[in-house]
Amino acid sequence: MRTVLVVVHTLPSGQRLLDVVEHIETDQRIQVVFTPAPDVFDSGVIDWLRSLGALVVPWQQATRQRFDLAITASYGGLSEIHAPRIVLPHGAGYGKLAPQATGKGSRARRQVYGLDAQRLTRDGRVLADVLVLSTNAHKSILRAQCPEALSSALVAGDPCYDKLLASMHLRKLYREALCVEDDQRLVLIASTWGAQSLFAHSAELMPRLLQQLDNRKFRIAALLHPGVWFGHGKRQVLAWLSEYRRAGLTVLTPEVDWRAAVIGADIVIGDHGSIPVYAACARVPVLTVDGLDTDVAPLSANALLADRAPRLRLTDPIEPQLHSAADHFDDDDYAAITAAVTSKPDQAVRLLRDAIYCQLDLPEPGRHRQLEPVAMPQRQV
């Protein structure tokens, strides 16, 4: 029997890894083991793993054992894992710039985070045996930033995108689960985490939406990055949002698969995070907020969306802006953003499964399973 270690740094990376793991864990020749890896945003990971009923080993134990394969979507502590390593992106490709180096001398050009030698190498060795890239453009960036990792690169598309598209036929059921009436429009507020996030900068957004939009015509939901929830604490976040919740705001907890809300939405108001990008891939109109994209990598899907999406103006009436947003995007806009997310649409699971079985030196069993749709959203407040 082969043992595969799934290294989970954060709740979002863990949810992303499940899109891949669920396609190998049915094989009785494979034992899947999870470990919560140390991370500044690792709060909630252990409880989430327990809710899955997964076999979990502590990080200290995981770093002392040898496994047949490790799969992760982040880099922290990766050099301590004794196994061949497959590393996936944990967002819509590689859309952020690495932090600016400090010190004397000229300011170096900031590199794309996750495709830089600082993340990918340790003591002159490439950490990933298989470095999963979503697009051919990422391979070009890798060639410029860390050419020694090119031999490990695999352009495999985006399993998150593929599952999103495979679930689109359940839109009506997702909307029912979110308590959206047939004649209502669902407005989804999507914020990433950090000082440059929508949640940190747009205190006026939620009250203005609730004040200006007729609740008979609109339902408003908020989807906050798990980093917001666990960085501040659930109790604090719910307290901050309590007035808006009483006024009708639906708040989706971090355990909910956000893709159900994106599929059910009629419009997304977002920032530079991944969720608005995936919304555009699903042909959901997006409005963005000014000044929140300073760390976005040029030519990424995030940058394309920031360039093409209309800006929400809080000083103007909001409802007309929601209606006009749908007319702002055309097929070329949606296609360009999707192409920046995946070069292998509907192929990610097959390509990743091939890579996993190759690393495990096992023949693949039978035919590939169809993608399971995104689960119905259960937890909302």
Rank of each mutant, 00 (worst) to 15 (best):
residue 314 L to P: 02
residue 148 E to I: 11
residue 55 L to A: 10
residue 133 L to P: 00
residue 232 H to C: 00
residue 352 L to A: 11
residue 213 L to D: 02
residue 261 A to L: 09
residue 172 K to A: 15
residue 29 R to D: 12
residue 299 L to A: 13
residue 369 R to M: 14
residue 52 L to F: 01
residue 313 R to L: 07
residue 351 L to K: 03
residue 1 M to D: 02
residue 67 F to H: 05
residue 181 E to P: 00
residue 250 T to E: 15
residue 236 Q to T: 04
residue 288 T to W: 05
residue 314 L to A: 04
residue 137 A to T: 05
residue 81 I to Q: 03
residue 231 G to T: 01
residue 6 V to W: 01
residue 58 P to H: 09
residue 215 N to A: 13
residue 320 P to N: 03
residue 282 A to H: 03
residue 95 G to E: 15
residue 280 A to L: 10
residue 40 V to Q: 13
residue 29 R to Y: 00
residue 123 D to E: 05
residue 48 W to Q: 13
residue 296 V to C: 07
residue 180 V to L: 09
residue 137 A to E: 08
residue 26 T to K: 15
residue 86 I to K: 01
residue 152 S to F: 04
residue 117 A to L: 12
residue 381 V to A: 07
residue 78 L to N: 12
residue 279 A to N: 08
residue 265 A to L: 05
residue 14 G to Y: 01
residue 107 R to Q: 09
residue 317 P to A: 03
residue 140 S to F: 12
residue 336 A to Q: 13
residue 105 G to D: 00
residue 159 P to M: 05
residue 32 V to R: 04
residue 356 I to K: 03
residue 199 F to I: 10
residue 94 Y to R: 04
residue 113 Y to T: 09
residue 235 R to W: 02
residue 167 S to A: 08
residue 311 R to N: 05
residue 73 A to S: 09
residue 203 A to E: 07
residue 2 R to W: 01
residue 353 R to W: 14
residue 229 W to C: 05
residue 117 A to G: 10
residue 284 V to W: 07
residue 345 P to T: 10
